[in-house]
Amino acid sequence: MKTLDVVAFQGASNLPMWVAEEQGFFARHGLVVTLSITPNSVELARDLHTGRRQVALTAFDNVVTYVEAQGEAGIEGGTDFFAFMGIDDAVLSLMAAPDVPDIAALRGQSLAVDALTTGYAFVLREMLRLSGLTEAETPFFRVGGHGMRLEALLEGRTAATLLTTPPDLVAEAKGFRRLARATDMIGAYAGVTGNASRAWAAANRETLVAFIRAWKDAIDWIGAAENRDAVGALFRARMGGAPAVADRACALLIDPVRGLRRDLTIDPAGIATVLRLRSTYAVPARPLTDPARYIDLSYLAEATGG
């Protein structure tokens, strides 16, 4: 049995991890997998760079950030991070306090983000620009992952923030406003991907391929109609919270169009948006046009026979 340490944010996109564990898919493929939850993207990048964790489940932009040495983790000279599979397409919504009627009303407000130089901050910046707001009019402050940003919103420490599912549903159930869905404004966007370092992956190809196979088994199990009730029960048990919110979040995840990526590929249009936004907003500025710098799907092809 090979051991594998995985790091991710707390959230619904971890559903295949829970399924692979409980249904024995990891064990079937010769793996003992441990999942650790990170508080923010900076700690996640450090864990992956040092080898403390071998696989990270996080936004594709985080891979680009640290390959281009534009992150906040203090990693000099860039990294050899890469994405080896797609997990979702960034189900992000701009959620705001109940008294904020629209995006224009955020002028003069401070907004919470995970980190100042990673992709979701750039998504938010673009949404604000498209709504006629400048960076000076809506300053950002660093809070951490989705759970921490939800807490900041509920406590009134921020007027608005980008949230994924189910934190967006939690906020909505408490009367907070959904001002816009990110992809409705900016187009396709590559969301959470499976990521590793190229050096580790090359030296542990069999282990990474086994992980992808177990993940694919979990995705197929989640998508099977006869497992619908079991998927819902597992999701409620792992995520907690109000059953109605959990059920709505689970329904989104298993949706064949908007939910978890069934074929584990990464949408080229979503990749292009990530690179466009990073080319526009990252410092130091540079044009980013080559997805091959950040992606290697050969492990996925070997795992799935594609």
Rank of each mutant, 00 (worst) to 15 (best):
M1I: 07
M1D: 08
K2C: 05
L4K: 01
V7N: 01
A8M: 04
A8L: 05
A8K: 03
F9M: 07
F9R: 01
M17G: 04
W18P: 07
V19K: 01
Q23P: 06
F26A: 01
T34Q: 15
T38H: 06
P39D: 14
V42C: 10
L44Y: 06
R46C: 12
R46H: 14
D47L: 14
L48T: 10
H49F: 15
H49M: 11
T50L: 12
G51P: 13
F60N: 02
F60P: 01
N62M: 15
V67E: 09
E68R: 05
E72S: 15
G74W: 13
E76T: 13
G77T: 06
F84H: 08
S93H: 05
S93Q: 07
L94G: 03
A96D: 02
A97E: 09
A97V: 02
P101Q: 07
A105G: 12
R107H: 13
Q109Y: 10
V113G: 04
D114Y: 12
A115K: 03
L116Y: 12
T118H: 13
G119S: 14
A121E: 10
V123D: 08
L124H: 03
R125Q: 15
R125E: 14
L133D: 10
T134D: 12
T134Y: 08
E135T: 13
E135Q: 15
E135C: 09
T138H: 12
F141E: 11
F141A: 13
G145H: 09
M148L: 14
A152P: 04
E155A: 07
E155D: 04
G156D: 04
G156R: 07
A160W: 02
A160H: 01
T164S: 14
D168G: 02
V170T: 04
K174L: 00
F176I: 00
T183L: 06
D184V: 02
G187Q: 09
G187P: 03
A188Y: 06
Y189W: 08
T193N: 13
N195F: 07
A196Q: 11
S197Q: 14
R198C: 09
R198G: 10
A199T: 14
A202R: 13
A203P: 02
T207G: 11
I212F: 02
K216L: 05
D220R: 08
N227L: 07
R228K: 07
A230N: 05
R236C: 04
R238V: 04
G240I: 03
G240V: 05
G241Q: 01
G241D: 00
A242I: 00
P243N: 00
A244L: 00
A244N: 00
A246L: 01
D247I: 00
A251F: 01
A251V: 01
L252M: 08
L253T: 05
I254H: 01
D255T: 04
P256A: 09
P256V: 10
R261C: 06
R262G: 04
D263V: 11
T265Y: 12
P268C: 11
P268Q: 13
A269K: 14
V274M: 03
L275S: 06
R276D: 14
L277D: 02
T280F: 11
T280S: 09
Y281Q: 06
P284S: 10
A285I: 07
L288V: 02
L288C: 05
D290N: 14
P291H: 12
P291I: 12
A292V: 05
A292G: 09
R293F: 03
L297C: 07
A303D: 06
T304A: 10
